[in-house]
């Protein structure tokens, strides 16, 4: 402990800069993040206990919004669609791995092929949604003639409540597979060639090679692929909004879309009810966030 004999600011800074500097650097970032991300999460929890149209007086109604939610068939449709998104979206991971294995060669022009396979990911989901909506369109789209080649009769994918969600998920998989592919291509680059050679000498090839030698080395890539795919699935909003507006008859809604619809669409501004849906969505996501942080924390202890 040194006595504060001189009050010269410069020397105060000299003595304390190791402790003060991190906070100085963190201040603007934390302030922004707290204002726009951290506080709003708690506010949403609070708003979900009110009936509020976004303008007038908010009225406290306790858990009524949640009670209403459990009697709301649209909520169950959305939740069920979210489950479908979550499960089917994970197909992006084996899909991406498959394309990555297919492209992991060194022939002429392969770099360009890799880029072109990847680039659906770079296009905005809005445009991907439009492109697929036209692709499925029964009067102008290539989808029906294409399935016709395999003997299927033409269908209106986005107009049928039984197929619409699968149609949108397939469109969503397109960029997501590209993303997983690039993760795996990077991972494959780092696979230890000596281990592969050693395994080859032991007679490993094909499936066993992939399963016992390659995949364990791709674990970091797989982990990230799972995280981004799960989050992508729960965030699905853009495509639904662009391709179907949740229809037909609300059959393609997911929680993220339904929340937006009740809060901000022409059906009335039910902010409290919307916030309650958002809270449910948040709690689902929290499971994954907790899992991710726990894994990160385990790794950090290694430092």
């Amino acid at each position: 402990m040194s006595a504060p004999s001189d009050t010269d600011q410069r020397s105060w800074w000299r003595r304390n800069q190791m402790r003060a500097a991190p906070w100085l650097f963190l201040a603007p970032g934390i302030a922004f993040f707290a204002l726009y991300v951290v506080f709003p999460i708690f506010q949403s929890f609070q708003i979900s206990l009110y009936r509020w149209d976004g303008l007038g007086e908010a009225r406290y109604i306790g858990l009524r919004n949640y009670e209403d939610l459990f009697d709301d068939p649209a909520f169950y449709t959305s939740l069920w669609n979210n489950v479908r998104w979550l499960v089917l979206y994970l197909l992006a991971i084996p899909g991406g791995l498959f394309i990555a294995l297919f492209l992991n060669q060194q022939v002429r022009g392969i770099r360009l092929y890799k880029s072109l396979f990847f680039f659906p990911f770079v296009i905005s989901q809005v445009v991907v949604g439009l492109v697929f909506a036209w692709f499925y369109n029964p009067s102008i789209g290539l989808f029906n003639p294409l399935i016709g080649l395999f003997g299927f009769s033409p269908m209106n994918v986005l107009g049928n409540p039984n197929t619409v969600t699968y149609g949108i998920i397939a469109a969503g998989l397109w960029p997501q597979v590209a993303y997983c592919m690039i993760l795996y291509l990077t991972g494959l680059n780092a696979v230890d060639p000596e281990q592969v050679e050693a395994a080859r000498l032991d007679g490993a090839k094909g499936w066993p090679m992939l399963w016992y030698v390659i995949l364990p080395q791709l674990r970091p890539a797989t982990f990230i692929a799972v995280v981004v795919t799960v989050i992508g699935a729960l965030r699905s909003f853009d495509m639904i909004s662009v391709m179907t507006n949740g229809g037909p008859f609300g059959s393609s809604r997911v929680l993220a879309y339904y929340m937006f619809e009740v809060s901000l669409s022409e059906y009335g501004f039910r902010m409290g009810y919307g916030a309650a849906i958002a809270v449910i969505l948040f709690l689902i996501m929290l499971v994954y966030i907790a899992f991710f942080l726990w894994r990160m924390w385990r790794e950090e202890r290694g430092y």
């Binding site: 951290v38 506080f39 709003p40 949403s44 969505l281 966030i289 942080l293």
Partner: peptide, 15 residues
Amino acid sequence: FVAGNFVPFQILMVP
């Protein structure tokens, strides 16, 4: 920061 980055947008929307 990491957790906030994964949060669904909808929980932030109204506030």
